[in-house]
């Protein structure tokens, strides 16, 4: 348990600051398939963003810009919901993709 804090360093009552999971848990390592975004087919309906369980469809200015592969678990919900087949699920190959 190297790198973990000792009891004297812990916050009172175990209270922690919000929104820290993203930095601590890189759930992208769970992925067996990765979504590939075909921008040319995308109509920017944002359905993939709305339904992503892992907040891993990146948007800027109300438009999809790609995926957060550090957290995307490869569930394929985005590909299933996409009305234009603009998202393709492809098998992860090797460790370098699975652990970005």
């Amino acid at each position: 348990m190297a790198g973990l804090k000792g009891w004297r360093e812990l916050p009172l009552g175990g209270v922690v600051a919000g929104g820290t999971a993203r930095d601590l848990n890189k759930t992208g390592s769970w992925r067996a398939e990765r979504p590939i975004w075909h921008e040319e087919k995308c109509i920017q309906c944002l359905q993939c963003w709305l339904h992503c369980p892992d907040d891993s469809v990146l948007i800027r200015g109300g438009k999809v810009t790609g995926f957060d592969y550090e957290h995307c678990k490869g569930c394929g919900v985005c590909a299933a919901i996409c009305p234009k087949d603009a998202i393709e699920m492809v098998p992860e190959r090797g460790g370098e993709c699975a652990r970005p």
């Binding site: 999971a21 759930t27 992503c52 369980p53 892992d54 550090e70 394929g76 919900v77």
Partner: peptide, 16 residues
Amino acid sequence: RFTGGHTLCAGCAEPM
């Protein structure tokens, strides 16, 4: 308001 990095199953509907 609700970030990635949680450990719900892949494809879980709760975060939606």
